[in-house]
Design a protein around this nucleic acid. Sequence first.
DNA 1: AATAGTAATGGCACTCAGTGCCAAAAAGGA
DNA 2: TCCTTTTTGGCACTGAGTGCCATTACTATT
Lengths: 207, 207
Amino acid sequence: MKDASVTAKLPPRQLGRKRSSTRAELSHIALQLFVERGFEQTTMDDVAAAAGIGRRTLFRYFPSKNDLPWGDFDDLLTAMRAHLARVPADQPLVDALREAIIEFNRIPTDEVPYHRQRMTLLLTVPTLAAHSTLRYSDWRAVIAEFVAARRGVDILSLQPQAMAWAFLGVSISAYERWLRDDRSDLVELLDSAYDMLGSSFDESRHR
Amino acid sequence: MKDASVTAKLPPRQLGRKRSSTRAELSHIALQLFVERGFEQTTMDDVAAAAGIGRRTLFRYFPSKNDLPWGDFDDLLTAMRAHLARVPADQPLVDALREAIIEFNRIPTDEVPYHRQRMTLLLTVPTLAAHSTLRYSDWRAVIAEFVAARRGVDILSLQPQAMAWAFLGVSISAYERWLRDDRSDLVELLDSAYDMLGSSFDESRHR
DNA sequence: AATAGTAATGGCACTCAGTGCCAAAAAGGA
DNA sequence: TCCTTTTTGGCACTGAGTGCCATTACTATT
């Protein structure tokens, strides 16, 4: 009897009907509509119609309307976790985080305007801002996990949690500044923002 | 002609039909149901029926189901803002915040179990956790406003924002620990948590 | 008392997000 | 061609939230 688990994780040998869309496509189409007509004014029917698929199908690609602007965020998080796992042990904690987060937020120049729209929506539309909490929570978990491993403490203890929150807050502040100024550079803003945290949470303090 | 604006802010001299409920009552009734049957399993119809009012009326007291567990949080925030405004100028920044927040979270002993239920819901039910962001945002604004005023910087600048986020994160972490341990004391947890922040964000650093 | 003015109530009908169910479509392999 | 697998999308239903409006309860005035 062959062991099925060997290939279990790989694309399960293309069977059955092909998917008619990708999450990325749908996210893009939805974003377009949200920016044009406004988030509240756009219904899921509108999005489905614009994408040429059924409403029911749209709900299979994204569990909620709020998830549409986020696209494939989960994949990015997975990548960031993997990146952090590969960081050499001698790189200082805050440096490692700074570098990982910045890498994670480095947007190709031609996609910058697109990303601005996305983030403007996520930070200003109340429903989306609220829903974002759940994503931020995952994001914080990645940070806290890394800090906890490095410091050899429990992930639920105060320091990893506080650092994760602080990094999140500072990142969002930097994002808000970026959105306020058309000519600003996100990476620069993030970098200088983390400088402040670096001086606050350095290795010599907190045990 | 008399100037109407003189009395405009005061309770406008009891006119028309009396309110049949208070926000506090309704919040309490709803919380009871949410704990018994679960948040998702309880409909607004259920809450309205339990309170003996119409569904439509319930929606006038609370704009959404998510707002029910929060009760009169806005009033508490207003009180905290007023409290901070009265803090003597010579009291160190972090001390002032620590004291204000703790005062704000000091719960009468007999209400503790009730508050535990409320916070358990708010932190564990996904919909509520997401919606809480909006309340946290108001909370952070109070903190950031105070820090900005003290340091003479813009409220949108990095330091007030970062401090507000850090305080929020540490507070929530303390709350989560409190909920995990039945015998723990919330005020103690908050107090010791802020110790860490105090050593991080002291006056000598950051310009 | 009767009346006028005011504010809260709650019923009705509607929109829209989200879900369970299931038959049909679209692929591949035998 | 037939069988299996997977995706699709239509239909119907629940529940949150909203606009509209007649009714109710209360106060002040005459």
